[in-house]
């Protein structure tokens, strides 16, 4: 890409609109999954906060709440409510990341989103591939040592991320 004429883009409200659509989808999914009214109300509050304050912890809390609520509300791990949540969560994450960059009255060039959207499609394909593998894999008990190693690895990764984040400050 070489030259760009500014002023032809879309309003940044479209990014917040995309976040709002993702939030609405998550809320609809929660509603159809039969979560409790209290949890639904909390999710609705978090969704509102996510749209209004995309660069805040609200999207993360909403994602975690929605994932846990949907996971605990059914037995089949790959039922439609879960599969729908995979792209919705990713869309909320991406739209909030971009909307959080821009101040009031900003505009964006749609061509700038081409690359991240292409990458997001690839990630979604991999995630759905994982779900497909999980669907066809035998559901046997994993040996305890393997589980322990996996858990320690995850904890180590989490510690690395937190240390790196504090180092930035």
């Amino acid at each position: 890409m070489s030259a760009v004429d500014v002023g032809r883009g879309w309003s940044a409200w479209w990014l917040r609109g995309a976040a709002g659509v993702a939030c609405a989808g998550i809320l609809l999914d929660l509603g159809l999954s039969g979560v409790s009214t209290v949890m639904f109300a909390i999710a609705a509050l978090l969704a509102t906060a996510s749209v209004l304050l995309p660069a805040s912890p609200a999207p993360l809390v909403l994602i975690c709440c929605a994932a846990l609520s949907v996971a605990l509300s059914g037995d089949d791990p790959l039922r439609p409510a879960v599969l729908v949540l995979i792209p919705l969560v990713h869309a909320l994450h991406l739209s909030c990341a971009l909307a959080g960059l821009l101040p009031k009255g900003a505009r964006f060039d749609p061509a700038a989103l081409r690359q991240p959207l292409r990458r997001a499609l690839g990630v979604q394909a991999v995630a759905l591939g994982l779900a497909l593998i999980a669907a066809v894999s035998p559901t046997t008990r994993t040996p305890e040592p393997v589980e322990l190693i996996a858990l320690l690895s995850i904890a180590g990764l989490a510690l690395l991320v937190i240390t790196a984040r504090r180092g930035r400050r």
Binding site: S2, D5, L102, G105
Partner: peptide, 15 residues
């Protein structure tokens, strides 16, 4: 306003 553009753009033209 603030414009969100691709980082690969080398020349930005404003009227």
């Amino acid at each position: 306003p603030v414009h969100l553009l691709s980082g690969r753009a080398t020349t930005l033209r404003a009227t």
